[in-house]
Design a protein around this nucleic acid. Structure first.
Lengths: 363, 363
DNA sequence: CCTTGCGATGTGATCGATCACCTCCTACCG
DNA sequence: CGGTAGGAGGTGATCGATCACATCGCAAGG
């Protein structure tokens, strides 16, 4: 990259030969050229750009015309350098995005844009340690004002962030489930179990996701707690990894007699595996076994039987995560600056259970 | 934001009171402080940072020590301002990301990082026109060196980009399918039709995706071409929108006698709708009707029957798109600088057809 | 009539790095 | 022994904006 940019022969003297139409020279107009065209000082143009109130309407009009004529747009890099505000937030995405729904990023971007921030997306190969290293580096580079981590960081990294630089909120994609106020992640599991118990189910099995995901741990924990709270004996948990094969294997480990009548899978794919395993064992669903998934995969409604699942509003999840970071960045502002997020309207839930054919009363 | 930063009382003279430990003051060290600590000029430090070869090892060592002691990291904003290189590429993502697999973003980020670029993700509410407006604005802001559009832009916008500013490659998520060299998007459709024709099918129906997506148009076009190339009469096309309901409706429009024996759906969800519709009409699959989907949805392998589909390597797709942009940004560099991308090893295909139970010989 | 106050604008410094150009010193050669 | 080339490093300008402070002009008050 050194040798290729050796010749910088573009418009050596921009103020002279391109006061009227710098676009023709291949360079954008600067604030000085606007000032000259409008017959004012550069500082006045700067005031105009910052919407400083105390200006004569005539001056404003002249500058506005000059800006339009020159097709001027402020150089945000230069502004950022002087103001020390980059208006940029880095978002750490999982490197292997086999998971990670795009809607969460949508929500993140929405809130960031609403507050005038731009998003710098990056991901890091390797494990939490490598990710953490890169996050620190980024936080110190002066390039970003905050870092939103949507991939797990080392557990102990929560408080090690250098607050002198960018403030970092570890909004681990999965930890976030538990963190968003009272809309805790596990709650759908509790509701699933309770509803199924109301249908007569007494013996439950949970097929987990990959337990290095906080969401998987959260669902498992709520499952165990709920089972114990309802006094339904020791909680049965089959550790898996989101996969269909894991769900299938879980079914095959069950005894022929007195097996669980309801299986809570941590993912739709896992649930599909459970359904397959049950079919292989000759069990009917939901006659012999009720099955629930998680994620609301679009095809879940077309499985046989159609799959009961948990729909997660990922966009809202992303919004909440970014809102938390933005609130941290603006200590003076309201803790929750999002419009319409008051306590007046009851928020639609983050998670919704979609009951379908794969669940039913115990027979 | 004006009144909150009125008092700038942090280290008015950084070189004096914080030469040794500027971190304690809450500000990062600058190149001048490093220079002072190392006993050299700021320019020498700059040379060190740029890995300029001609330096005495002793000088290098002194600077290295100073950098470490001060925990110095270059201010990338300042560098970018002077060099006029931001090292940043904006990526336009679809606003409503109900579609849009995250893997494509992974591939995009991978290639960008490999070439030293960072990614600025953004999306724009509204239609192609609004998106185009924002893209132009971004390209002119001097903040980014290129824009990669993964959402459709107005058709006529291909050549209107201001090459004086950032060079813009319109890599519409869908157009990209057709653009990546010989790995054209439509080819899987051709192969699907050909293989099914080899199984005896003579009458095909294509259920399209939303035709404002270039990928939907591409699949349809290849379908029509292939049908005509094989001399299988006028091509039957049912315009739909990726949805299951569209696929279902398509089936219900078919005549009872002499209906198509193979349906190529543009999406797995659409195919699921086709399967549902067929079941409602009492048609067996693949006995009376062969069905293919697209996307390789994880649950497709657990539908009944399991769904034949097209797996798209989205990561590679993203890599190709970004590689194209990067190649445009570096006119002097090799057209394809990616390591291991020579012609020596035959590339694994971008698209793979996964044959499952939903397709079979005509009966 | 002169001063004071304030609205409106101009002047110069500054952010933190790189670029263009200059200087110094040493080694080598005729 | 002097001249010169070139390695190594220094000096000041510069990128394009904002900030701090000075200045100008006009109206009101003593």
């Amino acid at each position: 990259m050194t040798d290729e940019s050796s010749t910088q022969d573009v418009a050596r003297d921009p103020a002279q030969n391109s006061a009227q139409h710098p676009a023709a020279t291949g360079r954008r107009a600067t604030i000085w050229e606007v000032a000259r065209a409008a017959g004012v000082s550069h500082q006045t143009v700067s005031r105009y750009l910052r919407n400083d109130a105390k200006m004569r309407p005539e001056t404003v009009a002249r500058i506005r015309t000059a800006v339009r004529d020159l097709d001027y747009r402020p150089n945000l890099t230069a502004r950022s350098m002087r103001t020390r505000r980059s208006g940029r937030i880095a978002v750490l995405l999982p490197a292997v995005a086999t998971y990670g729904p795009p809607q969460i990023l949508s929500g993140v971007m929405e809130v960031a844009h609403e507050h005038g921030y731009t998003i710098e997306a990056f991901s890091v190969e390797g494990g939490p340690a490598e990710r953490f290293e890169r996050v620190l580096e980024l936080a110190d580079s002066g390039q970003v004002e905050g870092v939103l981590a949507l991939a797990p960081l080392p557990p102990e990294s929560e408080h090690r962030f250098p607050d002198r630089a960018a403030i970092v909120v570890s909004a681990d994609y999965d930890d976030e489930f538990r963190g968003v106020g009272e809309l805790a992640d596990g709650s759908p599991v509790a509701e699933l179990v309770e509803q199924l118990a109301a249908l007569g189910h007494r013996k439950f099995l949970h097929v987990t996701g990959a337990l290095d995901f906080a969401s998987a741990r959260g669902r498992r924990d709520v499952f165990v707690q709920t089972i114990e709270r309802l006094g339904l004996g020791p909680a049965l948990v089959h550790e898996s990894d989101w996969s269909a094969e894991g769900g299938r294997a879980a079914v095959h480990t069950l005894p022929e007699r007195d097996h669980p009548t309801a299986i809570i899978a941590a993912s739709d794919v896992g649930a599909a595996g459970v359904v397959l395993g049950a079919r292989e064992r000759g069990w009917s669903i939901p006659g012999d076994l009720s099955v629930t998934g998680w994620d609301n995969n679009q095809l879940g409604a077309y499985l046989q039987p159609t799959l009961t699942t948990v729909h997660v509003d990922h966009r809202k999840l992303g919004r909440a995560a970014m809102a938390r970071l933005v609130a941290t960045l603006r200590p003076g502002g309201a803790p929750e600056a999002g419009p319409g997020s008051g306590t007046t309207t009851p928020e639609p839930p983050l998670n919704t259970i979609i009951w379908r054919e794969s669940t039913g009363p115990v027979s």
